[in-house]
Amino acid sequence: MTKSHIKVTINGKAVEALVEPRTLLIHFLREQQNLTGAHIGCDTGHCGACTVDIDDMSVKSCMTFAVQADGASITTIEGMANADGTLSALQEGFRMMHGLQCGYCTPGMILRAHRLLQENPDPTEDEIRHGIAGNLCRCTGYVNIVKAIQYAAAKINGTPFQEAAE
């Protein structure tokens, strides 16, 4: 099968590559680009572990072909830290609030929470819970994930952080 030539921007870097049309974006990122942060969880579009940001949309990269992303700008967890290498507000929030245990869902959670906060900088707890409805976590029970996102929102907005009720 002839390969397609694609040009994408990944974490701010221009990338050109040849891909088989059937190559899923998650495989392109992990296997051709060595960006193994985004995970394959369920492989059926349910769990959200493979979530990346494509042109300002949260997308499940196991449900998208790499060719469909031709011309797009993609952000993965590897592109989430601040330019000076320090943790971004969301990453810091997950660390400070213990928003992860095994960590498998975390890259997808952070990418999804990133887009949520871009669209809704001061979400209620309910909006956070609905906003991450496409991301499954089997460890935390979500309580600390919600707190982590609230922590990040407060830090970005420069407002005091108020913990969600348990």
Partner: peptide, 9 residues
């Protein structure tokens, strides 16, 4: 319908 990610696509 589905979840936020699916609804973007």
């Amino acid at each position: 319908i589905a979840d936020p990610q699916i609804r973007y696509k």
